[in-house]
């Protein structure tokens, strides 16, 4: 494999990681001034900030790898829907607080071992981002775990709601562990983390939390996919419209 091919794969992979963080950061920031209590506004925005911070570094790097002069904003605000490669779980709507916490549990249980593994990536930048992001993900997971347990083992209503939220977002988790050619080649080269190794770690974490929360592991045969190749949920177009509108209304402007 020559260097050009490596760059294309690395670009695709870096962009996926960046898009995941950007889109979930955007989703979480929707909670500003809407959360169940003030303390939670602070916590959710903290997580959003961590994700947006990682997204900026990753998108900047993706722009450099691409070599077409696009910076973080060029990639965040000027790509159309099919060019985004975030996973469906990251873009999925937050629903109520129970669904948001269920989504956060599934995401953080994935991101923690992902970043931990990437600290050993042969790509220096990814390894650097991963070092910081792993610490943050550990906190995000702890936060999500605390809430999922409290909601699951709280009142009848909270149990019902968080179980419902979990059913909503669960099907999108299968896509996280897909091993397409890009991932397979990068695993081979020691750049990407191996989804086959992440899956059992994720399952153990999630199963333990759900058990403590007295929640059922959802059973579904529906394994939606497409995020990595730009086929997104209907709601994603609206997310982009809202996020990109102002930037696109003033072409070339600085902010």
């Amino acid at each position: 494999m020559n260097d050009t091919a490596l760059d294309t794969d690395l670009l695709a992979y870096t962009l996926r990681l960046g898009d995941d963080c950007l889109v979930l950061g955007q989703r979480l920031s929707e909670w500003a001034a809407r959360s169940p209590q003030l303390e939670e506004d602070v916590a959710l925005l903290n997580i959003a900030l961590d994700l947006l911070g990682a997204a900026r570094t990753l998108l900047t790097r993706a722009g450099e790898l691409e070599g077409k002069g696009r910076d973080e904003d060029g990639l965040a605000f000027l790509r159309d829907e099919p060019a985004f490669t975030c996973g469906l779980l990251f873009e999925a709507e937050g629903g109520d607080f129970g669904q948001t916490m269920a989504r956060q549990l599934l995401v953080s249980a994935y991101q923690l071992p992902l970043w931990q593994a990437l600290t050993a990536s042969s790509d220096e930048l990814l390894a650097g981002v991963a070092g910081k992001a792993a610490k943050e993900a550990a906190y995000h997971l702890d936060h999500a775990r605390s809430w999922v347990v409290r909601l699951g083992d709280g009142t009848e209503e909270s149990h019902r709601r968080v179980q419902q939220g979990l059913e909503e977002v669960w099907p999108y988790s299968f896509e996280l562990f897909e091993r397409d050619d890009v991932v397979a080649r990068l695993v081979e080269r020691g750049v990407a983390s191996d989804p086959d190794l992440l899956r059992p770690v994720w399952e153990t974490t999630v199963t333990e939390v759900l058990k403590e929360a007295t929640l059922e592991v959802p059973q579904t045969t529906w394994h939606p996919t497409g995020g990595r190749s730009g086929k997104h949920l209907t709601s994603f177009g609206y997310l982009l419209a809202e996020m990109q509108h102002l930037h696109r209304s003033h072409p070339g402007a600085r902010w």
Partner: peptide
């Protein structure tokens, strides 16, 4: 001070609120 239902949440909220 802050309000929290239990010690774990109190500690977590304290981290977010007082050590940003």
């Amino acid at each position: 001070s802050l309000r929290a239902p239990d010690a774990v949440m109190a500690l977590r909220n304290a981290r977010d609120v007082y050590t940003r």
